[in-house]
């Protein structure tokens, strides 16, 4: 009997863990990302990279004139070297958030692209991992590009700073997972704006431009709950070579974000498409 190739491929997965939800098609979804990327709006892609560089120029060399050095973790460092890791963490976040919120929202509600994808032999976890994977790739490339700018300027104090790149990927992964989970529950474009309303204050109050210790106790407490604070502390610790166990704690924060984000995204996509 003739067995179509698509069927043979799908049947090879029978008995594998989670076969109903996952078919191992993340590479194919990334491939879609690359094809669509070739004709995407380059201004948006570029702005994700340019933004942190502009912040670095304006704050690092503007405020850096008034405040040449700053105390951090017992070291005295250049002000620009203090904010560079924060901007790296933020650019990883921005790249991941853009892809996992705005882009996902349109594919889900406007173009119905996921409806098409889930009519194939893929499952909802393929779609979730593929989309998050793409967001993560963008976070990774922003981090690399930013690193290529700041490292030659001597703003990375320690060789451990190399680990800031994988840390940025972890951060992008965390934000992308949670971003997609939240987006999958949203029903209108207006609700999407709420994410942006949350992002700016988080950027301003996560210890990007000065240490959290200048805040009153209660504000420090709130700031320490924000994911970006943990992202910045993680990247800054690595870039400055201030290694401690607290870095693992910050990383753990993102591992939990990833797990929760993936769980709710898959659950929601299942509810939307497998009802």
């Amino acid at each position: 009997m003739f067995i179509p190739m698509a069927v043979a491929i799908a049947e090879a997965r029978i008995g594998k863990r989670g076969e109903r939800f996952y078919s191992g098609r993340v590479p194919q979804l990334l491939e879609r990302g690359f094809i669509a990327f070739r004709s995407s709006t380059w201004m948006i892609v570029l702005s994700g990279f340019v933004e942190p560089v502009l912040y670095l120029l304006s704050f690092g060399y503007g405020i850096g004139k008034l405040l040449p050095t700053i105390e951090s973790g017992g070291h005295t460092i250049k002000y620009a070297a203090f904010i560079a890791p924060a901007l790296l963490a933020t650019s990883a976040m921005n790249g991941a958030i853009y892809d996992s919120t705005m882009n996902v929202f349109f594919k889900l509600n406007h173009d119905r692209i996921y409806h098409g994808m889930l009519a194939t032999s893929m499952g909802p976890l393929d779609v979730a991992l593929g989309e998050i994977g793409w967001a993560l790739l963008r976070g990774f490339s922003y981090a690399c590009a930013f690193m290529a700018v700041v490292a030659p300027l001597g703003l990375i104090e320690s060789i451990w700073g190399l680990l800031a790149i994988p840390a940025a990927v972890l951060i992008a992964f965390g934000f992308a997972s949670v971003g997609m989970a939240i987006t999958s529950y949203l029903t209108s474009f207006q609700q999407l704006e709420v994410i942006n309303i949350f992002l700016l204050p988080m950027f301003l109050f996560s210890g990007s431009f000065y240490p959290l210790s200048v805040f009153p106790q209660w504000l420090q407490f709130v700031a320490n709950l924000l994911p970006l604070t943990h992202a910045i502390n993680l990247v800054r610790g690595l870039c400055l070579g201030n290694l401690s166990f607290s870095l693992l704690g910050h990383a753990l924060y993102f591992v939990i974000m990833i797990i929760c984000g993936l769980f709710f995204t898959t659950k929601r996509l299942n509810a939307l498409f497998m009802k």
């Binding site: 997965r13 076969e19 032999s121």
Partner: peptide
């Protein structure tokens, strides 16, 4: 039980 396999057909 076999969503992806069925959709392949």
């Amino acid at each position: 039980k076999h969503g992806p396999q069925i959709r392949a057909h």
